[in-house]
């Protein structure tokens, strides 16, 4: 559905997006993840034809976003980050206007508008002025606009930004339902959102793609720098040296001593599980081992690991 090939956007000397390439298949729900200023919005703006790329190419449903912009735009429902709406219009009036410029007419137009009003829960405010609406309803109005022509592809830029927890749940629920029928590219920096909604994640930082995979694959790869914590009784220095001597251990740190128990955390290599060997070591040296625990990586660890600056 989306094919992005070495897409680059420069603003003067600053490269906001640098040579990114990825594909989104039909029917996939893809999370576009990254810290603020990573280039998410710029990428989405290029895909929707608002900004032209400095280099590279991209296509939506087979149409080049630059040369066949109009055909590509017809297939996209886009919800920009700030949800811009006309304040002086009423909800239904706004949706009618948007549906018309997207080429809907007659009975199809009315049917679609009623459908999206139902879908987005706008029944109660359909006659209200947009400027009197709460943030949550504005977000839903924007979403209804993105949906109105029943596009093949939905591009949502931080759709739950600034909503209260109940509204976030409602919007997520809606997106989840939409994901059954549409291809969705959703940008966000809220990790739990991605874990709940997406089949695939693209992590972008400083304009480059850092990872692109399913959430579970990303997490299992990240067992990479897995961390083991343990408590034992014995000489702290010796224990640290002995642990460090193990094959797959990268780093040992002595956290604290408490009631004669020494707390260590051990960073191990990719995919390695050293728990059995550590236990064996303690038995050999006659150091009582009270607890040993391996921390499962979460998506948050993956994200931090890939995008932190130090």
């Amino acid at each position: 559905m989306i094919h992005v090939d070495h897409l680059t956007k420069r603003f003067g000397r600053h490269a906001a997006v640098e040579e990114i390439s990825f594909d989104v298949g039909s029917g996939e729900v893809v999370g576009f993840l990254g810290p603020n200023g990573a280039g998410k919005t710029t990428t989405l703006r290029m895909l929707t034809g608002y900004l032209p790329p400095s280099a590279g190419a991209a296509s939506v449903a087979g149409f080049d976003i630059f040369r066949q912009s109009l055909q590509a735009r017809r297939r996209i429902g886009y919800l920009p980050e700030s949800v811009p709406l006309y304040r002086d219009m009423r909800v239904r009036e706004y949706l009618t206007f948007r549906a018309r410029i997207k080429g809907l007419t007659g009975s199809v137009l009315n049917r679609r508008i009623e459908e999206v009003i139902d879908q987005c829960g706008l029944q109660a405010v359909r006659r209200k002025m947009i400027k009197t609406l709460s943030k949550g309803f504005r977000q839903r109005t924007g979403l209804a606009d993105a949906l109105v022509q029943d596009p093949e592809l939905l591009i949502l830029d931080e759709p739950t930004n600034g909503l209260d927890p109940n509204q976030i749940r409602a919007i997520r629920h809606l997106i989840k339902r939409l994901g059954e029928k549409h291809t969705i590219l959703i940008s966000t920096h809220i990790l739990s959102e991605v874990e709940m909604l997406c089949d695939k994640i693209i992590i972008i930082d400083a304009g480059r793609i850092k990872a692109a995979d399913t959430p579970s694959n990303l997490v299992s790869q990240m067992r990479a720098a897995g961390r083991i914590t343990l408590e034992l009784k014995g000489p702290a220095d010796d224990a640290a040296r002995a642990l460090d001597g193990l094959d797959q251990v990268r780093k040992v740190s002595h956290d604290l001593s408490h009631d004669g128990w020494e707390h260590f955390s051990v960073l191990v290599e990719s995919g390695a599980d050293e728990r059995a060997r550590i236990a064996q070591l303690c038995r050999d040296r006659d150091w009582p081992l009270r607890s040993i625990y391996r921390h499962e990586a979460t998506l948050e660890d993956v994200f931090v690991e890939l995008t932190r600056k130090d």
Partner: peptide, 14 residues
Amino acid sequence: RTGTLETLLTAPVR
């Protein structure tokens, strides 16, 4: 200023 230009120019409008 309000950003609605973005919604107009990303709709199929020349």
